[in-house]
Write a protein that binds this DNA or RNA. Structure first.
Lengths: 138, 138
DNA sequence: AGATAGATGCAATTCAATTGCATTAATATT
DNA sequence: AATATTAATGCAATTGAATTGCATCTATCT
């Protein structure tokens, strides 16, 4: 069952495994696609309080379980990290696609290319988002 | 004077040159750096109504005068486009840097590398944002 | 089982952004 | 130059995402 996977991840990250955290994590494990907070909230209904959901998502981002993608509207979207991600560093980042029509965010297979950063700036992570029309809207 | 430049640009884009539009455009011409809507609003004080400012910024993005960079917080930042930008296409895009400490957005000299997009997706523009500690905060 | 540290839920609040509508200003027309 | 037309502005109200404080509850540790 998916429960086991979720609990396993929480243990590894030294997080208490509450009903709510398991519920959210399971959802991400079941769907490889990115989802926005508002959509996730709608999906969960009254299972989890809005504030709790925000806090869980933040915790997961900080622990390297989820990555956050801010879309065109400035709304946070979340997707599960590759196993290589840790609390300190988010590795192996891929390109995201943000549809200008339906606003959905996709994780593409394309990896973010290495870039050179101007002297004096210290980059921790890089986000590459392509904007356009997605497969579904085409 | 800067006024002339701003009016020239507005003419070229077939936009009415109102006092407010000139004021905003001048500001961007004088400062090559990106600025957020809230900061710009604070800077302008009561010179321009908040809603008008939002509308001017949107118009400028649509006409290819400014480009919009959504930062970590989901807040819109704006910077002047290269001369190559048009209403239809934003060309010649460069890498942006978003400081995780002061939240400022910088336009770096580095160009966004070409990437291959998964079949079925049609990318119109690409945004590459590096997150980390900026020159000032270091 | 009891202690304790941390997570949750609720109410209230902040802050960015948008909408509707009346007013005003800029261009076009005569 | 005055008027008509079209678009931009300003104000009030509203939406929607995200955050904070605080009381309550729950998972882990002893």
């Amino acid at each position: 069952m998916a429960d086991a996977d979720a609990i396993e991840i929480l243990k590894r990250k030294k997080l208490k495994h509450t009903k709510q955290r398991i519920r959210v994590l399971e959802d991400f494990l079941a769907n490889a696609t990115a989802i926005s907070q508002p959509m996730l909230e709608k999906k969960l209904g009254k299972e989890i309080d809005r504030v709790t959901l925000y806090r869980i998502l933040n915790t997961y981002v900080n622990k390297g379980i989820l990555h956050r993608i801010v879309d065109l509207n400035g709304t946070a979207n979340y997707a599960i990290c590759s196993s290589a991600c840790s609390a300190d560093q988010h590795h192996d980042e891929h390109v995201h696609f943000n549809c200008t029509n339906c606003y959905k965010v996709y994780c593409l297979a394309t990896k973010v290319p290495a870039i050179s950063i101007t002297d004096g700036f210290k980059a921790d992570s890089i986000s590459l988002i392509a904007y356009g029309i997605c497969k579904e809207c085409n």
